[in-house]
Simulated assay, not measured.
Amino acid sequence: MNRVMITATNTLSQLQKQMDIHANNMANVDTTGFKRREASFGELLVQQFNNQPAEELMGVQRMTPEGVRQGVGAKLAQAKLVSTQGSLKSTDRALDFALTGEGQYFRILQQTENGAEIRYTRDGSFHLTPSGNNEVMLVTGNGDAVLGQNNEPITFSSDVNQFTLLEQGRLQAHTANGDIETVNIGITVVHKPQYLTQIGENMLSLPAEAEMDGIDIYTDLAGQFSGDISLSQGVLEQSNVDLSKEMTDLMNTQRSYQFQSRSITMADQMMGLINGIR
């Protein structure tokens, strides 16, 4: 296999990953609180040939780097999570909330194969479900528990009939007999969004504590940090996917894919001509 085929084959696999990223973004254009990813590329190893025989002439009247550099294709360096704010859609529903602070996420307790684990989401469409002992629990659309500031599931008396959002992420519930219950919604701000991993069902995860030792990746907004919480009631945040931009980028990626495929075809034809010489 010659250098042209190696370069094109390496790049094709990476372009396929970029197309998958665009496709995933477009598929979630209507997903509440979804954050798109953006691909960036880097160069693979290169081989340099110093083609200037006389050392004293190297660099003389040159406007380009010394030697000839041959690469072997490109690689997907990063699929960056873009945390920009999405537009807000009014629902006038008491248990719909939208985070208006960039990088802030609700903490959710999700049941996994390894037990209950804390996940993160921007989807603030919450519901109530019975939890026993005449109580109801605040959950996501998938039934996962919404956590409070102390990472405990948020529960109310079963006869609550009204909810009011107060400052600093405090949710006030009024019961039928006039009692008032107040809880603090668990909010986390992620300083380094590149550590977030999309795991499906509009959820994200962070690496284990051992892998984050000494790295300031996130802060739980509780206590003195509660004032940084930016939360609205009766609205939902839409995804930050720009469909027209994603379509344009996808078409550009497909053209690059076609170009690399054509390079392989041309290289194969050239090798066929050379092998056919008698």
Score class of each variant (00 low, 15 high):
S263W: 12
E55D: 10
H174S: 01
D213T: 15
S244L: 08
T112W: 04
T182M: 02
G33N: 07
N50F: 06
K192A: 05
S263R: 15
E66R: 01
V235D: 03
T265G: 04
P193N: 03
M63F: 15
K192I: 08
K75R: 13
I108S: 02
I277L: 15
Q149M: 06
S226L: 06
A173R: 01
D179Q: 13
D159R: 13
Q111L: 03
M203G: 02
M271T: 15
R36H: 13
T11C: 12
Q78N: 10
V82N: 14
A145E: 04
T7I: 07
R37E: 04
N114W: 14
E135N: 14
T155D: 11
E66D: 02
V183Q: 09
Q168L: 04
S158D: 11
G148L: 03
G103Y: 14
S244R: 11
H191N: 12
D123C: 03
S13M: 10
S263E: 11
M19F: 06
V4Y: 00
N24A: 10
Y257L: 09
L45I: 15
I108H: 02
Q78G: 04
I229R: 00
G42M: 14
K80Q: 14
I277H: 08
A222I: 00
V68K: 10
R36L: 10
T253V: 13
L12Y: 13
K17P: 06
D123A: 08
V136F: 04
K17G: 02
G132V: 12
I264L: 15
S230W: 04
L236Y: 01
T129F: 03
N151Q: 07
A173M: 04
M251W: 11
P65A: 12
G178Y: 11
L196A: 08
P65N: 10
E43Y: 00
Q47S: 11
N252Q: 14
I229F: 01
M5L: 06
M26E: 09
Q16L: 00
E117H: 00
Q172F: 03
D220A: 09
F106R: 02
A54W: 08
V183L: 03
N133A: 08
S40W: 13
Y105Q: 02
Q224W: 14
G178T: 06
M251R: 10
N24E: 10
T197D: 11
V136W: 01
M26Y: 08
G42F: 14
D242E: 13
L165N: 01
G223F: 05
A74I: 14
Y120V: 03
I187Q: 01
Q48C: 04
E209C: 00
I180R: 11
L12P: 09
L147K: 09
A77F: 10
D249H: 15
N51A: 11
Q168F: 08
A27L: 05
F259N: 11
L44E: 08
